[in-house]
């Protein structure tokens, strides 16, 4: 891609935007296939919120890059080695329990992250975070509600949610392990020290999991470096689909 995205503030915005876009994209895959019409509509709302906030981060990044760079250049023309989302959010949807477990772990982190970002020294970023926090709070409530209902529902839902928590938990450590992008952001006062969010996250998540009559898995964490552009094999396929049309017609405007 011809634009230079190396500027640290751009990198940070891309990291935040990539989390939102990739997760929103995954949620949008449920559209038309949800377990009940009301939930189909709810999942689409989540996807709309996330893609919406991704656009704001990308637009700000594009503005800072200048030279005619747009949000779509950033979303459709970077390779998966340039995407800086957490590996957690690119995981395939699986069944509804998997989707809610992934969502629940991320949402609880996202709310804490946004609470900190509201006070970012990067005031344009802070403004985006303030608006996004309202939505993220609602998302966190929604995913927690489902973890509880599925954990404390039927035998089948309980066993599925237990498995889903176990499948997603190994991806969680990356949320609290600073990489270059969030280390620099913390040094400049743009964002939080993500390691410091872990204790609160654990408290919130444990409370919900207990209410669901389940336990947090004690499983080893995966060694992950999504925030440094080293992803699971899932992201390549996701981006191949998402980016296919503009790449097939590079001269066209869409």
């Amino acid at each position: 891609m011809k634009w230079d995205t190396c500027d640290p503030s751009v990198q940070y915005l891309l990291h935040l935007g990539d989390d939102a876009l990739v997760l929103g994209h995954r949620l949008s895959e449920w559209c038309g296939h949800g377990p009940i019409l009301e939930e189909d509509i709810a999942l689409s709302n989540l996807a709309l919120d996330l893609v919406g906030v991704a656009r704001q981060y990308y637009q700000l990044a594009a503005k800072r890059i200048g030279g005619g760079c747009t949000e779509d250049h950033l979303a459709y023309w970077r390779s998966d080695r340039e995407f800086l989302n957490h590996v957690l959010v690119e995981q395939p949807n699986g069944d509804f329990a998997d989707t809610m477990a992934r969502q629940f772990f991320f949402d609880a982190f996202h709310v804490l992250q946004l609470e900190a970002l509201q006070h970012s020294t990067d005031t344009e970023l802070a403004a985006i975070a303030r608006k996004a926090l309202k939505e993220a709070t609602y998302h966190a409530q929604h995913s927690a509600d489902w973890v509880v209902r599925l954990g404390d529902g039927t035998e089948e839902s309980r066993s599925r949610m237990t498995a889903a928590l176990a499948r997603n938990f190994p991806f969680v450590e990356e949320l609290f392990t600073p990489a270059e992008v969030d280390r620099v952001a913390f040094e400049r006062g743009w964002g939080p020290d993500v390691a410091s969010l872990k204790a609160t996250w654990l408290e919130l998540v444990s409370e919900v999991v207990a209410k669901a009559t389940l336990e947090l898995p004690s499983i080893a964490h995966k060694l992950l470096r999504g925030k440094s552009g080293i992803h699971s094999e899932s992201l390549g396929f996701l981006l191949a689909e998402m980016q296919s049309l503009p790449r097939a017609y590079p001269d066209a405007t869409w």
């Binding site: 895959e29 559209c31 689409s44 990308y58 979303a75 689909e241 296919s244 049309l245 869409w254």
Partner: peptide
């Protein structure tokens, strides 16, 4: 939706399909 060629188009299409779900409801 997953192949919409711009972010704006993606949002608009997702909102449209969601509306259709709502109308069915």
């Amino acid at each position: 939706i997953t192949r919409a060629p711009s972010l704006r188009a993606k949002l608009i299409l997702l909102a449209k399909v969601q509306d259709e779900g709502g109308h069915g409801l």
